[in-house]
């Protein structure tokens, strides 16, 4: 028990709790499905989790800054669409590496622009992030549907699929991509001046302002970078599904919010770490794969996500701990 306490202090309380939850899930699902504890299942999770992971990371920094980015999925879609149209313009399946790189650059630019516009409005007009990102989400969805007429865009070079399906040193390529982005995000948030500002803006923007931090620039940058990570997610989506459809991955929005709260991020901003969120992503991926393996109805899974989100918030809420304490005193 002492050992657990020590690890808990070293890694942080939420990390240990999440590790325990993860072990529990593995046990439950291995009991329910013989296919859960197999290399094939874990490999498939390794290919699936990075997409959720990237989108969650895109949601993370705005959350820590006290805001929210509801437009993540559609920013990813639009970025993917930007890349797709460039690759198609350069010959589709025959397009060369330079066209792919150009397309990726354009996708990242598109994501950055979408993010920057939100950041500018939030920072300089002072509008509510929920409202701004919701409007951006409606706009991007409309734009995407307008451009694609609601259909699929497909036909890309075969090499490009490697990013989605290939592997490097025995690990899935998407996992590498995610690892790089997550590491960069960790350094950005915990080590850079900008990251420091993000936490301060999230805990009290006016006090941060009174301390001489560039709060507005911080907000613009956060949302721009969030857009860039969405774009990377969009590129990955393109590579994995070999097509773009606006609305693809729509359901992931809820799961990213869930991952973030499961990872112990303060919903009012100012606190939160990257590592517990990554654990939360893995847990949710296990839950998703596990539900899939035991043949649960996908709609039932949606409901389970929602219930799980409520449960996590209830368990994390102060009211709940107060409740527990009060009970503790009585007994």
């Amino acid at each position: 028990m002492k050992g657990v306490e020590r690890i808990r202090r070293l890694l942080g309380k939420e990390t240990v709790d999440l590790l325990l939850l993860m072990v529990l899930l593995v046990l439950i699902f291995s009991f329910l499905s013989p296919r859960f504890l197999t290399a094939a299942n874990f490999a498939s999770m390794g290919y699936q989790a990075p997409l959720l992971g990237l989108l969650t990371i895109a949601m993370l920094a705005p959350m820590i800054s006290g805001g929210l980015n509801l437009a993540i999925v559609y920013t990813a879609n639009i970025s993917g669409l930007t890349m797709a149209s460039i690759v198609l313009a350069f010959g589709g399946p025959e397009a060369g590496t330079s066209a792919i790189l150009l397309g990726a650059a354009a996708a990242i630019l598109a994501g950055a622009i979408a993010g920057a516009v939100m950041g500018l409005i939030i920072a300089y007009v002072g509008a509510h992030p929920i409202l701004v990102s919701l409007a951006m989400m409606i706009f991007l969805r409309g734009l995407g549907e307008f451009l694609t007429r609601g259909g699929d865009v497909s036909g890309f070079p075969a090499e490009f699929a490697l990013l989605g399906h290939g592997s490097l040193l025995g690990l899935p390529a998407p996992l590498w991509l995610f690892a790089v982005v997550a590491l960069a995000w960790q350094i950005l948030l915990r080590k850079s001046r900008h990251g420091f500002s993000v936490y301060m803006v999230g805990s009290n923007i006016r006090a941060a302002d009174y301390s001489g931090l560039p709060t507005r620039r911080t907000l613009v940058l956060i949302y721009t970078l969030s857009g860039v990570v969405c774009a990377i997610a969009g590129i990955l989506m393109l590579a994995r599904f070999n097509s773009v459809r606006v609305g693809h991955g729509e359901a992931l929005l809820l799961v990213t919010v869930l991952a973030i709260f499961l990872g112990g991020i303060d919903p009012f901003g100012g606190h939160g770490k990257v590592l517990p969120v990554i654990l939360a992503i893995l847990i949710l991926q296990m839950l998703s794969s596990g539900l899939n393996l035991i043949g649960a109805n996908p709609h039932l899974s949606t409901a389970v996500w929602g219930l799980f989100l409520i449960l996590v918030m209830v368990l994390r809420s102060e009211q709940f701990t107060l409740f527990k304490k009060r009970k503790g005193i009585k007994t």
């Binding site: 929210l68 929920i130 929005l253 809820l254 919010v257 709260f261 919903p267 009012f268 949606t302 409901a303 996500w305 929602g306 219930l307 989100l309 409520i310 918030m313 209830v314 809420s317 102060e318 009211q319 709940f320």
Partner: peptide, 15 residues
């Protein structure tokens, strides 16, 4: 539980 309403209604929406 003092949970912000956007989170609760995103959750109930899905449930």
């Amino acid at each position: 539980f003092r949970i912000i309403s956007i989170v609760v209604t995103i959750a109930t929406f899905n449930v």
